[in-house]
Protein backbone atom coordinates (compact mmCIF):
# COMPACT_ATOMS: atom_id res chain seq x y z
CA UNK A 1 0.00 0.00 0.00
CA UNK A 2 1.24 3.44 -0.80
CA UNK A 3 0.90 5.10 2.59
CA UNK A 4 4.02 7.15 2.10
CA UNK A 5 2.66 8.63 -1.11
CA UNK A 6 -0.59 9.41 0.63
CA UNK A 7 1.25 11.27 3.39
CA UNK A 8 3.39 13.14 0.86
CA UNK A 9 0.31 14.23 -1.05
CA UNK A 10 -1.47 15.34 2.13
CA UNK A 11 1.60 17.22 3.33
CA UNK A 12 2.25 18.93 0.01
CA UNK A 13 -1.37 19.94 -0.29
CA UNK A 14 -1.38 21.41 3.19
CA UNK A 15 1.88 23.32 2.80
CA UNK A 16 1.13 24.77 -0.63
CA UNK A 17 -2.49 25.72 0.14
CA UNK A 18 -1.58 27.32 3.47
CA UNK A 19 1.29 29.27 1.87
CA UNK A 20 -0.96 30.72 -0.82
CA UNK A 21 -3.85 31.47 1.53
CA UNK A 22 -1.68 33.09 4.23
CA UNK A 23 0.16 35.31 1.75
CA UNK A 24 -3.02 36.37 0.02
CA UNK A 25 -4.84 37.00 3.29
CA UNK A 26 -1.97 39.17 4.50
CA UNK A 27 -2.22 41.10 1.28
CA UNK A 28 -5.95 41.59 1.74
CA UNK A 29 -5.44 42.65 5.35
CA UNK A 30 -2.71 45.14 4.50
CA UNK A 31 -4.80 46.62 1.69
CA UNK A 32 -7.64 47.02 4.14
CA UNK A 33 -5.39 48.76 6.67
CA UNK A 34 -3.92 51.02 4.01
CA UNK A 35 -7.43 52.04 3.07
CA UNK A 36 -8.22 53.26 6.57
CA UNK A 37 -8.47 56.99 6.81
CA UNK A 38 -6.42 57.58 9.96
CA UNK A 39 -3.30 55.73 8.87
CA UNK A 40 0.20 57.04 9.43
CA UNK A 41 1.86 55.59 6.34
CA UNK A 42 -0.71 54.06 4.02
CA UNK A 43 1.71 53.97 1.11
CA UNK A 44 4.22 51.69 2.82
CA UNK A 45 1.44 49.32 3.82
CA UNK A 46 0.09 49.28 0.31
CA UNK A 47 3.51 48.33 -1.00
CA UNK A 48 3.71 45.54 1.56
CA UNK A 49 0.31 44.36 0.38
CA UNK A 50 1.55 44.28 -3.22
CA UNK A 51 4.62 42.41 -2.01
CA UNK A 52 2.37 39.79 -0.42
CA UNK A 53 0.26 39.40 -3.57
CA UNK A 54 3.47 39.17 -5.61
CA UNK A 55 4.95 36.49 -3.37
CA UNK A 56 1.67 34.59 -3.53
CA UNK A 57 1.78 34.70 -7.33
CA UNK A 58 5.40 33.56 -7.31
CA UNK A 59 4.53 30.64 -5.04
CA UNK A 60 1.85 29.54 -7.51
CA UNK A 61 4.21 29.94 -10.48
CA UNK A 62 6.90 27.96 -8.66
CA UNK A 63 4.41 25.18 -8.08
CA UNK A 64 3.51 25.13 -11.78
CA UNK A 65 7.21 25.19 -12.67
CA UNK A 66 7.73 22.05 -10.59
CA UNK A 67 4.79 20.29 -12.21
CA UNK A 68 5.18 20.99 -15.93
CA UNK A 69 7.68 18.45 -17.28
CA UNK A 70 8.74 20.82 -20.04
CA UNK A 71 10.70 22.90 -17.51
CA UNK A 72 12.11 20.20 -15.31
CA UNK A 73 13.75 18.20 -18.07
Amino acid sequence: MKWLELLTVAGTTLVSAVTVVVLYSLGVRLTAIAGDAEQASPRAKRYFAYLCFGLCGLAVLFGLYLIIPYFSK
Binding site: E5, T8, V9, T12, T13, A17, G63, I67
Partner: peptide, 16 residues
Protein backbone atom coordinates in the same frame (compact mmCIF):
# COMPACT_ATOMS: atom_id res chain seq x y z
CA UNK B 1 -10.21 26.54 -4.51
CA UNK B 2 -6.63 26.83 -3.32
CA UNK B 3 -6.97 23.54 -1.45
CA UNK B 4 -8.59 21.86 -4.44
CA UNK B 5 -5.92 23.02 -6.86
CA UNK B 6 -3.04 22.05 -4.58
CA UNK B 7 -4.56 18.67 -3.78
CA UNK B 8 -5.16 17.77 -7.43
CA UNK B 9 -1.83 18.99 -8.68
CA UNK B 10 0.11 17.45 -5.80
CA UNK B 11 -1.67 14.12 -6.04
CA UNK B 12 -1.47 13.69 -9.79
CA UNK B 13 2.23 14.48 -9.83
CA UNK B 14 3.27 12.46 -6.80
CA UNK B 15 1.66 9.27 -8.02
CA UNK B 16 -1.39 9.04 -5.82
Amino acid sequence: ETSTASAILASSHLGF
